[in-house]
């Protein structure tokens, strides 16, 4: 997956697709993301009828069901405004998989259209808003965990680190095997719990070994996974969504 090379100019309006994990478990991160966008002078439209992008069903092989849900999401974005998603996983679903999932439906053109204007949050802030962040927080070290979807499906290994590096008081430290999966993988964590458990343990240990007590991520699946294991093992490592981190440090 190669990253988008040509970004549009900053728009007046965007759609915000919150993602179901944020909706249920981390709504504050969603709100912080919206605040970050509004601070750039953008009007954020939150389609009230949004539910789920369909990815869990899609990766489980239940494509008939995923397709129906995908069609419903597509209908939320009729205007030609960018769709900003605070998740590489759901962003990847819209941008990479909706066109193929809906390939044999009359809505395939709509799927291509939405895919072409779907952006992950950090990508949008950096490459469309050209955001300039001023750090108001205390000095600290932080580690970044980029989700596999953000990195490989959407080609965004650099956007979150670039934003973090704008924060003058923040030292971004890198854990070993930074590109290795944290083991969430959606339903993988429950279908293959032992392997998934081994992977998240290694990820927590790697973050802990950097000396940073804090990490950020752009994906709530990874967040739930890594935080959950750290807490289970009573490790001092704690993470939050990058939207919350950036909002807190710059406002």
């Amino acid at each position: 997956m190669t990253p988008i090379k040509h970004y549009p100019p900053k728009p007046q309006k965007v759609y915000f697709y919150g993602t179901c994990l944020i909706d249920v478990f981390y709504p504050g991160a969603g709100l912080d993301a919206i605040r970050l966008l509004e601070r750039e002078g953008i009007e954020v439209i939150f389609p009230d009828d949004q539910t789920c992008c369909g990815q869990p069903a899609y990766t489980s092989g239940y494509h008939d069901e995923a397709r129906r849900v995908a069609l419903a999401q597509l209908a939320l974005f009729p205007e030609p405004w960018p769709v900003v998603v605070p998740s590489g996983s759901c962003g990847g679903m819209l941008r990479v998989h909706y066109p193929t999932l809906l390939a044999d439906t009359p809505q395939v053109d709509a799927a291509q259209d939405v895919a072409a204007r779907t952006f992950e949050l950090t990508e949008f802030l950096l490459n469309v808003c050209h955001v300039k962040l001023s750090d108001l927080g205390e000095p600290e070290q932080v580690a970044m965990h980029t989700s596999c979807s953000a990195r490989r499906e959407m080609g965004l290994g650099d956007t979150a680190p670039a934003l973090l590096n704008q924060l003058g008081q923040v030292e971004l430290v890198e854990q070993v095997r930074t590109t290795e999966c944290c083991g969430f993988g959606g339903t993988f964590a429950v279908r293959h719990p032992e392997v998934s458990g081994a992977m998240v343990e290694d990820k927590v240990d790697a973050i802990e070994a950097t000396g940073a007590r804090h990490f950020v991520t752009s994906d709530c699946g990874c967040l739930m996974n890594i935080n959950g294991n750290a807490e289970h093992r009573q490790k001092a490592v704690q993470g939050e969504h990058i939207a919350s981190y950036l909002w807190r440090r710059t406002s």
């Binding site: 909706d23 478990f25 981390y26 709504p27 959950g228 807490e231 289970h232």
Partner: peptide, 18 residues
């Protein structure tokens, strides 16, 4: 939960917060 604590649903959904 063999490997992780379970996250709790938040008090208010994003839908409502927005």
């Amino acid at each position: 939960t063999d490997y992780r604590t379970l996250p709790q649903p938040a008090k208010t959904s994003l839908h409502t917060l927005v």
